[in-house]
Simulated assay, not measured.
Amino acid sequence: MLAALFGWYRTKKSLAFLRAFIDDSGSEKGDRRLFLAGYLNRADKWALFADAWKEELRAAPSIDYLHMVEAGNFRGQFHRKLGWNEEKRAEKLRSLARVIRHFDPISFQISIDRNHFYEVLAPVSPRGLANPYFTSCSALIAKLAQQGETTGTKGKIEFIFDSQEGVDDDMDMFFDDMMQGISKKARSWIAGRPLFRSDREFDGLQAADLLAWHIRREHEEVGFPNMPMAELLRGNNHIVSEIPNSYIDAWAEHHRQQPGISSVQSKTQWRNLKSEARKLRSVGINPARVTKPGVYYPDSWGIFGRVLELARRLLGR
């Protein structure tokens, strides 16, 4: 099954370059679950998709871009004063969904219980790691890379996320350490650090927004049949993953046992840490690899231990 999902992306002459576009949608109901969802396809198919997507955006009634917050609430380009109603909106979204289905991408989703995360893990985490979006980004990258590994083929995936303030800096600083938790073969599927871009810049992010919004709405409509649009957008091959609360509990228990958390929990402390780290980067030093001579930190510390040691070195704690 996984070979069918990933293996067909490989060409006979060379490895196909893949792109995954990911957006998020967070619920304010129940467990306030955060969903990250998106699509994976070959780069050449994404180029063709962009032309088809723009053509459908321009088709009457036309819009310049798709943003589901506007569509869902009849705001901005979907304002009722511009002639939009439920029927016209539904047909526009269905037309865009048909464009996505035409290119037959792999769709995927990952989710996390934000209530549990903020209650249990955030209070004992460094500022940058106390963010469920950050955690979900790294977990999703690892999940898709591991899926690729199991196929027995080779490939490269470029990950492009919708912009999130501060997360790009945090991810850039500790990405290499985060990825040490997966196998070397899985890491070989990752085409460098993830990018964080505006959905105005990449049409694939607008498609991911459409999927994430409907998956989140489907989650909120407990007891109702699957939303037809969610089913249409999921496509033929869909990967579902969830970060269990038991993982969050285990991470929190580990964090509680480590000294020095208070030195990297405020916004100012975290900003200072990143500022000092950037100075090291500017002279060719990887700040995530800075450690005291002769001091050994077990692998179980991972990125968490790196953050604390970096804080002690750079901030003099």
Rank of each mutant, 00 (worst) to 15 (best):
N115F: 06
F224R: 15
M179Q: 06
P287E: 06
A97P: 11
M1Y: 14
M227Q: 13
F304E: 15
K88H: 07
G76E: 09
A252K: 01
I160P: 00
W8I: 02
A16T: 15
D249I: 12
K13Q: 14
W53H: 12
Q77H: 06
F6K: 08
E70M: 07
F202G: 02
E158D: 11
V295F: 05
Q257T: 13
S198N: 13
E201T: 13
G302A: 05
G155W: 07
R94V: 08
L140H: 04
R289P: 00
W213N: 00
D31A: 14
E276F: 11
N226P: 02
E70L: 03
G38D: 08
T153D: 11
H238E: 11
S27M: 10
S188Q: 12
H67S: 06
R216F: 04
Y39L: 09
F108W: 07
A130Q: 09
L121F: 04
W213M: 00
Q257S: 14
V283L: 08
R193Q: 13
S163K: 15
Y247R: 13
L314M: 05
D177P: 00
S125K: 08
I303C: 10
G284I: 10
R313L: 15
A97I: 10
D51T: 12
I141T: 06
N236F: 05
D209W: 06
R58M: 08
R216D: 10
A37R: 11
H238C: 13
S62W: 03
G235T: 03
E119S: 03
F108E: 13
M229T: 06
A212M: 08
Y297W: 04
L195I: 08
L129Y: 14
G155S: 11
L140N: 04
L308P: 02
P287I: 07
K274A: 02
S27V: 07
S246T: 15
V295K: 03
A50F: 00
H254A: 12
S198F: 13
R94Y: 07
W46L: 07
W189G: 09
T135Q: 12
L93T: 01
M68S: 04
R278D: 10
